[in-house]
Design a binder for these strands. Sequence first.
DNA 1: GTCTATAAGAAGATAGAC
DNA 2: GTCTATCTTCTTATAGAC
Lengths: 206, 206
Amino acid sequence: MNTKERILDEALTLFSEKGYTNVFVGEIAERVGIKAPSLYKHYKNKQAIFDAIIGEMNRRFSVTADMLHIAGNDAGKDAGIYQEMSEEKMIELGVSLFQYYLHDDYTRRFRKMLTIEQFHDKALADTYMKQYYDDPLSYQGMLLGMMAAQGFLKTDNVSIMTLHFYAPIYLLLTVCDRDPDREEEAIRILKEHLRQFDQIYGRKKK
Amino acid sequence: MNTKERILDEALTLFSEKGYTNVFVGEIAERVGIKAPSLYKHYKNKQAIFDAIIGEMNRRFSVTADMLHIAGNDAGKDAGIYQEMSEEKMIELGVSLFQYYLHDDYTRRFRKMLTIEQFHDKALADTYMKQYYDDPLSYQGMLLGMMAAQGFLKTDNVSIMTLHFYAPIYLLLTVCDRDPDREEEAIRILKEHLRQFDQIYGRKKK
DNA sequence: GTCTATAAGAAGATAGAC
DNA sequence: GTCTATCTTCTTATAGAC
């Protein structure tokens, strides 16, 4: 990683912990191992660092979104995939996805930075909404909808079923972001949630 | 409202919109209609204003919490109250509660300020968690648990049922905080959520 | 590209008159 | 309690040598 990239990386870490205004240019430079003025050879000013981070974030978000769309559509074509999915397997899958979102370095720092900075700028609030509300409900709705169409789930309102699937996951993620010590508890609850979801909406009614 | 109270009020508004560091003492003073130095006759410094707001917030939160506990216990003693609660009545109640949380001036500003400032200080993160995770799940769990005990709801896991009730409400609240234009949509979804919740966990299975 | 020195300006806070 | 004037400190950013 070159200096220009390291600046972005350290800045992202600091912004996600303290917010834009509470991070000083000298602080970023120190972490990179240079003095503040040197930093201005790489970026025009502090705002340009922030903008570059936002740009990179949007790029990564849209790459992930595309991947999910493709994966979702592929899964839809292969109807057999769901047949093999037992409750335990579904829970395992849900937990790994949760842990990825929680621990992946970029995902976690972007999420915390957006949480702090979302009210500074309407565009950031929109990005937050898209990433943590519209897109998840859209992708997961697509998958759950296909499972319903194939008779593996039972509902007459796919969007609300999707909301019931996703909202607890979102809530538990916010818990762990604020208090990492509660991760174990959150994962226990997540598993119970997924199990109960499967009982409610699954093929075999309890 | 005297000057000391007006300072707190305007500061809370500004902090909830821009965050502590992005609000200048002169800005608060201007809104109150005085000059910055006058403000120091009422509060030792900027931090003292913030601390006073946090103190007031915690006071109001605990008053509400006590009220909910008492109301919940009273409701528990009066078993008949739930018998009269039709699905439509339950939806109406849920929507009014949602709109109260969304529009009540203090509730809304405290929530936005906590969202922005929560990572500056572990105590604030703890307050956030208590107010928007532990307490709601505890109160609502108490109520739903009593309804289950009396046979009006059916589940073998009250905490997860409560999570299924509350998590979508929390998610929809974050949507409206970030984009007030989506309130109408959110309330439509909220109603569908409550209706489906009643169908899933209500006495009469669909 | 990195450094030292420094300019330029902003923001919090105080002094002291009224 | 409120004001004007001012101090002090902090922070961003630039100048110019190496």
